[in-house]
Write a protein that binds this DNA or RNA. Structure first.
Length: 448
DNA sequence: AGCACA
């Protein structure tokens, strides 16, 4: 057998590699200087400085072989040698194909984050929850999700590296707050690195990928079922098809939740066509019908897990109903068809219902029905803001949380649940928390 | 000025 063992350690002409070996570098050359040097030729995904006995050698790894070739070729014919701090550096293809044990692509900051969701239930985390989580730091352009050997992963694209970095710094190693997750899900921990991507390619809006910069992007054919119903946005628990009818169950119902209260709450997101309330499993449930799925989706996103009243009372759990059109036989205090006003002795929404709850925080947050929130335009003291309904004395949009609401039309203002004080989310209907807790700060404490 | 790290 011919031995293949006697490859020379290096040759004077190396075969191309996307790793370049640099020598004669100035003292304590930094990674940044290496990146600067390589950047004109391509994406530098890894570097290694201070190599060799004199610590004056280094490696640069490009994302693509052609980029390394471009750099070598350029300096091979350039009259100006490659320089760092005015010192000529010599470069050649490395005899390695990749740099190991140093910063990988994962540590070269970029505007796209690679998020690995750890936990037994990681793959049940919906793209919507991820969007919510990362939107706290700025406009999320796109998200793609996929499963690999590493588990359930997502790429989250921000406008710029700074925003991505702030999200990474705040969220890496933390768990998604449990109140954002469907019940019974175990902890889902985020491991975040930088991706080498700068712009994700999202062809369709689907349960696996979203482009928030392009609402007109077609919905993935695969996300539409036989009945033409959109089933994208798997919502955590199950592959629950979206529906224009929501099933709301009310937990910890210390106060009466009437049809009118529900109507008020759900009308914030669009016209409510019908409501039917009924008892089930010792609790109260209600079916709420909107004219379209979109509105229901928005309402569900905004309301799920939130409480109608302060103190964790009347917590809503919302899922999509299999119904698409409720049959309301009679208009009474448990069911109503708002599309037929004549037949309804419309007991106009009784103010007393809210009035009798000193801590009532419900209001008609009409503006959630469509336009995105524009926090900067809302002054906390603004009187008579019809949408300021989450509680008397609580500004519709505290100035302190613009990031939070940024680009997120779905999240009503409010405070965070107590257990999540330093967390990323606010719970729209709990207004009893001190305002300081509204700050989207991750610096201290743990996320749930 | 000529290839690290585990």
């Amino acid at each position: 057998m011919a031995s293949v063992s006697s490859q020379p350690q290096f040759r004077y002409t190396q075969p191309p590699s996307k790793v370049l070996h640099l020598r004669n570098l100035p003292w304590e050359c930094t990674e940044e200087e290496l990146i600067e040097l390589g950047k004109p030729f391509g994406k530098v995904v890894n570097t290694k400085c201070n190599v060799g006995a004199n610590r004056n050698q280094a490696f640069i790894e490009f994302a693509d072989l052609n980029q390394a070739i471009a750099m070598i070729s350029y300096y091979a014919s350039s009259s100006e040698p490659a320089q760092v701090r005015g010192k000529t550096v010599y470069l050649q293809y490395s005899n390695r194909q990749e740099i190991v044990n140093n910063k990988t692509t994962a540590d070269v900051a970029g505007n796209v984050l690679l998020v690995t969701i750890e936990g037994a239930d990681a793959r049940l985390v919906s793209i919507d929850v991820l969007h919510l989580v990362f939107s706290a730091f700025g406009f999320v352009h796109k998200i793609t999700t996929f499963e690999k050997t590493a588990g359930f992963q997502a790429l989250v694209q921000f406008s710029d590296t700074e925003t991505a970095s702030s999200a990474k710094n705040a969220l890496d190693g933390r768990s998604i707050p449990s109140y954002l997750l469907p019940e019974h899900l175990g902890p889902c921990t985020l491991r975040i690195t930088y991706s080498a991507h700068t712009d994700l390619s999202v062809k369709f809006q689907s349960h696996r990928s979203r482009d928030y910069t392009n609402p007109y992007l077609p919905v993935a054919p695969s996300a539409i079922d036989g009945s033409g119903q959109v089933i994208m946005g798997l919502d955590g628990k199950k592959l629950e098809p979206e529906s224009n009818v929501l099933l709301a169950s009310i937990e910890n119902m210390q106060y009466a939740v009437t049809l009118d209260v529900l109507h008020m709450v759900f009308s914030a997101f669009g016209p409510v066509q019908k409501i039917a309330m009924f008892d089930k499993n010792g609790g109260v449930q209600a079916l709420i019908q909107y004219p379209d799925v979109q509105t229901a989706v928005v309402a569900k996103e905004a309301l799920e897990g939130h409480c109608i009243y302060d103190g964790g009372f009347c917590k809503l759990h919302i899922s999509y109903s299999r119904h698409t059109d409720l049959s309301i036989k009679v208009n009474n205090d448990r069911s109503r068809d708002y599309t037929i006003p004549n037949t309804t002795p419309m007991v106009n929404s009784q103010p007393s219902i809210l009035g009798q709850q000193p801590t009532s925080v419900m209001g008609s947050a009409v503006q959630y029905s469509g336009a995105p929130f524009t926090p900067s335009q809302e002054q906390p003291g603004m009187p008579q803001q019809p949408s300021a309904g989450w509680g008397p004395g609580v500004p519709p949009m505290p100035q302190s949380m613009p990031m939070q609401m940024h680009n997120n039309p779905y999240m009503p203002p409010g405070t965070m649940p107590p257990q999540a004080a330093p967390g990323m989310m606010q719970s729209p209907m709990q207004s009893g928390m001190p305002q300081s807790s509204m700050l989207p700060r991750y610096g201290s404490g743990q996320m749930q």
